[in-house]
């Protein structure tokens, strides 16, 4: 579903991402761990075609994201660290707008139900987003991914700054989407969330994917040790 083949991004002499090879299949949640500047966000931006690769390719459903920008974007949903919606519109209006852009036209009732299923409190659905917390906005993002029927989720530190309850709710939503066969690539600093939610984990440093493994292969303690070992080397 998601594939990076020798994906490289350079800015002059600086290598932001070096020969990344990665495959994420349906129903997998791949968590990329790493310090700031490790290349996690660069990977996501390359899959989104927000930036162009220096070499290699990023594919979604076997389609190159550069050559098939529009088609690949129809398949994915993106939730950044701080999902920003239009503050002067309500959550429902934002959802209607973004769904419409993706060509998914659903009734107001259906969208309200999706927002509720995504954990947004009913009385906030028709309130302007300027009144929303970060967690609420992330829930609208999940509702949008569901409404669009996305096959791929690209998440850039989505739980950063969320309180444990909101973070846990977000993880549950991810797991429910995993059950529906959604392939997820999540960049995160949160080791606990990566172990708890991810099916696969990769550790990145200075643009390189140093290690990747299935999350069930390691305990949380071992993951922490492994991570710290790589960070200190």
């Amino acid at each position: 579903m998601l594939e990076a083949i020798n994906l490289t991004k350079k800015y002059g002499d600086f290598t932001a991402l070096q020969s990344l090879n990665l495959t994420i299949n349906e129903g997998e949640i791949f968590c990329l761990l790493g310090a700031n500047g490790a290349g996690k966000s660069t990977t996501i931006n390359l899959f989104l075609n927000f930036i162009g690769a220096t070499s290699g390719s990023a594919k979604i459903n076997d389609l190159d994201v550069t050559k098939h920008a529009r088609e690949t974007k129809q398949l994915l949903s993106y939730i950044p660290e701080n999902l920003m919606l239009y503050k002067n519109l309500t959550g429902l209006e934002n959802l209607q707008f973004f769904c419409g852009l993706g060509g998914k036209h659903q009734s107001k009732g259906e969208l309200e139900e999706l927002l509720e299923q995504s954990g947004l409190q009913t009385d906030f659905i028709n309130r302007r987003v300027s009144n929303y917390s970060k967690g609420m906005r992330q829930k609208v993002g999940i509702a949008l991914a569901r409404a669009r029927g996305s096959k791929v989720l690209l998440l850039d530190e989505p739980t950063s700054g969320l309180d444990p309850k909101a973070s846990n709710e977000f993880s549950e939503l991810l797991l429910s989407m995993k059950e529906k066969g959604v392939a997820t690539l999540m960049a995160t600093h949160d080791l606990f969330r990566a172990k708890d939610t991810g099916t696969h984990i990769g550790i990145m440093k200075e643009g390189r994917l140093l290690e990747k493994f299935e999350s069930q292969e390691v305990s949380f303690r071992d993951l922490e040790k492994l991570y710290l070992k790589h960070m200190h080397n």
Partner: peptide, 10 residues
């Protein structure tokens, strides 16, 4: 940040 979200919709 809404530009990212807009463009990510295709």
């Amino acid at each position: 940040g809404t530009l990212k979200l807009l463009i990510s919709q295709g």
